[in-house]
Design a binder for these strands. Structure first.
Lengths: 207, 207, 207, 207
DNA sequence: TATGAATGAGCCTTCATTCAT
DNA sequence: GATGAATGAAGGCTCATTCAT
């Protein structure tokens, strides 16, 4: 289903293929798309570089497979329904969601940048990027709609505009904090406040 | 002063060099960094490919020069002091600023993506990106501080966190609307509201 | 051990690599260093030009490898202990040595000139040249010391000066005779006499 | 007469042309033939690099002109008839000649190597080299013949073989001492002795 | 004459991909 | 399935030479 190229028939084949996908992700994240040579991926996976072509038709498909894996992870993560989601007070709910979003996004931030790099050279990748982002945006849109339905957020907000915009804000923050290790909890708190106020929530005073 | 490589000594040289920078920008925007061949830039500028090397040591410097030009543009644009800046009511002031930001950013969005592509392959470019972004962020930080000083924005907002986050939000919006021609004025209005509410401003009701 | 770049793992690889070194030597000798294109070497070895880079990082390393091979040959040749070396009369001993020197040198004369060419453009090669020459000079120095110890040569000769000078004389002669096919045995006899007289040996009269 | 390319018609032209020849020699000696760019020569001469082509059709002719100048110098130097040439005792005569040879050769050693480099890439230059060397060899041949005629040197020496061989010896020594500044007078004395003994002269004992 | 710019042939090198074993 | 080798298209860059002014 998620296969892009050859499906392994043996256990050994499956292991090799998985190792290649994992290796590819590491190397792509480390060097970017263009600067990654098939050679590097093979070496990282501990196989001969001819072997990559046993499992993938080419470099593109390798990236596509890695991206696919990310989509899977993200979708899975989105499925989690943690406790606080049922809380009545929207602010702590939001705080938890933001924190989770940041954690999840940070895991994939570098690969997103890599896909963006690929898209810069070949617009075909734009679709993949949009697809990935749409997962995040959809979640946010749903959140906004719920807040409006519950009377927490004003009706004059258009979720179709606000969702991508707010996601973009958190994305940018996440991307930066993915590199910058000085990000503190208070920074995350600040981000949550901006988000909350932007959609009309009342922000608790204690700080 | 803004020279990165060779300075032309004659009028003809200056014209050629300028044509090359302009051509490079067009081609970079069209194809991205990696996919741009020196040949393409030369052809676009209407000169032999050897001529590019008369003025620039290599592809890197060409990109650096184009980026330099953008920084110049952006700084110049930031210098403009339009009428509404003096208005007492912060919301229209903000609306104008957002609109101007979008217009300015859209002009450079594609090149920023190109630099990002270059940075993905060679981290050396990260610095250039940061420098460019800092220009926008600094402006926003200043705006936030003024709003706080004037009592329009609450004191619990940390401009050092909020400025990059909000800039990121507008950046993302701008990037998307740079490609998507369906962006309407009402979308911009939505963005302005988010921004305004996020920093605690009162948003006019009529819409 | 003698590897400079990649070591072949298969028989086929070894054959290709060896063919490349041999081809490189032929082409270098034919055209000189600068005028030799990687293309030429590849063609001479009967492989695609990309294959050269499978085994050598660049042109430099190719020359280095060829030179390495020569050093090996020369050292091996120097190891031979022919009969006449044990003769009591120094002159026939010298005559034999000179002849062998000429034969050996002639085999490498052209490549030495090539390295000299490379050294002229890039002084880094000077070291390689010195190393090669030192092999010859050391042998001569040893010969001189033995002659002095045996009382055949006067003590006022300084082997450290005479060895390079006499080696230079034979080198020059060899280089010229490498190109000039009119060199006769009597020429070699003349050279031997000069050498012998220069270090004070008695020269037989019959000629 | 010694002109290879354009003859200057004005004083200014003559100065430029001379400056170019001098500059070319310096740069050739510094970097070798291949590594010298016309640009470098022009810069060294303090003119625009287009100007080189006003006076010389190309790089080859520039080298040819420099070499020509050297031939002139050498011929002029050979013309000098110093006092000791008339001395009856051949050894001091020889010592003086050797010293002069060394001095003269050292001045041109590097350029000879450069021509040799050019010859390595293009055999056409071999002729120029031979011509230059022949000047030295001829002088030595004449010296040998005189020594034989005067009964100082044995008749079994063939000046046609000995002259190039001995010249080669001194050449090698000179080349090495041109780079190596540790050459002492006693080294020169050693060289003279080898030379003298090689041609059968009696060498004075005091050392 | 001199200058500064433009030209373009030519070379080295990289690396995705193919292939024989 | 895996391996190591071979391939060759493609592109960056240099620099001798030409040219307009």
């Amino acid at each position: 289903m998620t296969d892009i190229a050859t499906t392994p028939l043996t256990e050994r084949g499956r292991r090799t293929r998985d190792a290649l996908v994992a290796a590819a992700r590491r190397v792509f994240e480390e060097r970017g798309y263009a600067a990654t040579r098939m050679q590097d991926v093979a070496a990282e996976a501990g196989v001969s570089h001819g072997t990559v072509y046993t499992w993938f038709p080419g470099k593109d498909e390798l990236l596509r497979e890695v991206t696919h894996a990310i989509v899977g992870e993200v979708v899975d993560a989105a499925r989690e329904r943690p406790r606080e989601a049922t809380s009545a007070d929207p602010y702590p709910r939001l705080a938890g969601a933001t924190r989770r979003f940041l954690v999840g996004y940070r895991r994939n931030a570098r690969m997103l940048a890599v896909v963006e790099e690929a898209a810069s050279a070949d617009p075909e990748w734009t679709g993949v990027l949009d697809e990935l982002r749409e997962i995040y945006v959809t979640r946010t849109r749903r959140t906004l709609r719920r807040l409006q339905a519950e009377g927490h957020a004003p009706a004059d907000i258009d979720p179709d505009v606000a969702a991508p915009a707010l996601t973009g804000m958190v994305e940018t923050f996440a991307r930066r904090s993915a590199t910058d290790p000085t990000t503190t909890d208070s920074d995350v708190e600040q981000l949550t406040r901006l988000w909350a106020r932007a959609v009309g929530l009342t922000v608790p005073n204690h700080d």
